[in-house]
Design a protein around this nucleic acid. Structure first.
Lengths: 168, 168
DNA sequence: GCATAACTGTTACTAGATATAACAGTTATG
DNA sequence: CATAACTGTTATATCTAGTAACAGTTATGC
């Protein structure tokens, strides 16, 4: 804690001196690094299909919930409606989903997958599943379940913070 | 799997029908959502200190490793060198760290925290620790340890993929 | 009924993170 | 000493994410 002048790390003293020990004690930092690795790998996995993480996610939700509206899709993916427009545009232009007028509400669109969209869904989902298994290959199934469970509990915290007066 | 016409979800049929069941089976998707929640909360935590996630991380590493260079800092945080410039600029302008010429190498700068930087480090780190404990309050210590361990194993996958011929 | 509020998708704009190419100055290597 | 490699930097590009504001449509309250 004293203000030493020059010690710290000298070039070539070791391979990787682990300079982020303090940050490693934070769950969020460790998660950021792990997610960064997943993101980079997944990007390469989806590229051959002409998809990004967001367009893949949107396609999956539309295939699983044909007929839903853009606002519902945005809610499901926790994306703001304005940001949903370009994502849906891209999927429509790629011929993977269709934007048909929703019957009974002239404001809204009903999103449905095309045949092509369903076919790509199958192939892309399989590739992403393989990617996921590759990224978690060092975890046994029990640990992977615990990981997903823990992540769910962390995400849920934001929905329960209304009465204990901690954060608004 | 058949191409049903209109079923899916009708407005008002339920509160939150869980339209992303398929995506939930992917570790990366669950992690993205959890990390998104952490990011949003952490942003609010750091704002009073005039820090962002990246500037906070950089400050912590500089305080813990006084004298290190920008390239070393970038490596430690897995950030490209060009992106490090603005982050260091911001910390220098805020008077939290100093960019002094590295002795023995006229190319490089040695980064060191100022007194002000060390003081803010203490306060911000405490706030982030509280934030981290709040986000993981639904996990007992064993589960939290398992989470961090699992995240580390996932991140490590990218460093061991050179000989099994899966991905370049 | 009808004024008002709320919702739909959209445009425009902003801020931030991340990545690459290319550069001048400096140091290391053969 | 010529060449390669490294330092920080600029410029540029893409993607994510968020807010404000809008016209058209639907729902609500009186």
């Amino acid at each position: 804690m004293a203000d030493r002048a020059e010690p710290a790390v000298k070039a070539g003293s070791g391979p990787e001196p682990t300079r982020d020990a303090t940050l490693r004690s934070f769950t969020g930092y460790t998660m950021k690094r792990a997610f960064h690795a997943i993101q980079a790998d997944l990007k390469d996995v989806l590229e051959p299909f002409g998809l990004r993480m967001l367009t893949f996610s949107a396609l999956v939700v539309v295939v699983d919930n044909p007929g839903l509206r853009q606002a519902e899709l945005a809610d499901a993916l926790v994306i703001e409606r304005p940001n949903m427009v370009l994502i849906v545009d891209q999927l429509v232009e790629a011929g993977l989903i269709s934007r048909a007028p929703a019957e009974g509400d002239r404001r809204a669109y009903a999103l449905r997958p095309t045949e092509e969209g369903r076919a790509l869904y199958q192939r892309a989902t399989a590739a992403v599943r393989a990617h996921d298994e590759r990224m978690t290959k060092n975890l046994d199934e029990e640990k992977r379940q615990l990981l997903v469970s823990a992540l769910g509990l962390i995400e849920a915290v934001q929905w329960e913070e209304d009465d204990n007066g901690e954060r608004s």
